[in-house]
Amino acid sequence: MQEFTNGMAASLFPVRWIKSRKSEANGMCVEVAALPQGGIAMRNSTDPDGPALVIKNAEMEAFMDGVKNGEFDTLCVGN
């Protein structure tokens, strides 16, 4: 099974990339994908061949918990 690591070109990942329904029509968004061996890959949709970030499921769960609790709200434009 292929090993996926941080910094690999996102186009090398044999996955289905998904993005939020709230993403801008011009494609400026973050896309994520489940990896075959577990974990999640993340990429910038404006650079689909650029580097991907690979994270573990537990790391994504911790991040999502922080998002839901508003811990990153100060990073958003307009806050």
Results as ranks from 00 to 15, higher is better:
residue 27 G to L: 02
residue 48 P to Q: 08
residue 1 M to E: 13
residue 76 C to T: 07
residue 20 S to C: 07
residue 20 S to M: 02
residue 20 S to E: 08
residue 2 Q to G: 01
residue 48 P to C: 08
residue 4 F to Y: 14
residue 7 G to S: 07
residue 22 K to N: 10
residue 27 G to Y: 01
residue 75 L to A: 02
residue 78 G to F: 00
residue 19 K to T: 06
residue 70 G to D: 08
residue 53 L to M: 15
residue 9 A to G: 14
residue 67 V to E: 12
residue 12 L to K: 12
residue 43 R to N: 09
residue 73 D to I: 04
residue 35 L to K: 05
residue 47 D to T: 07
residue 62 A to E: 14
residue 50 G to V: 11
residue 52 A to F: 06
residue 50 G to Q: 10
residue 58 A to L: 10
residue 56 K to W: 02
residue 14 P to N: 13
residue 54 V to I: 15
residue 63 F to R: 12
residue 40 I to N: 00
residue 33 A to C: 09
residue 51 P to V: 15
residue 33 A to L: 04
residue 4 F to T: 07
residue 54 V to S: 04
residue 3 E to P: 09
residue 18 I to K: 04
residue 26 N to W: 11
residue 31 E to M: 05
residue 64 M to W: 14
residue 12 L to I: 08
residue 29 C to Q: 09
residue 73 D to C: 00
residue 40 I to G: 00
residue 73 D to K: 10
residue 41 A to V: 09
residue 68 K to N: 15
residue 15 V to N: 08
residue 59 E to R: 11
residue 37 Q to A: 13
residue 72 F to R: 00
residue 3 E to H: 05
residue 76 C to V: 09
residue 11 S to I: 14
residue 30 V to A: 15
residue 50 G to H: 08
residue 76 C to Q: 02
residue 2 Q to E: 14
residue 47 D to L: 08
residue 62 A to F: 08
residue 68 K to F: 13
residue 16 R to S: 05
residue 56 K to I: 07
residue 68 K to P: 11
residue 42 M to F: 00
residue 8 M to W: 01
residue 63 F to M: 15
residue 37 Q to T: 10
residue 66 G to T: 10
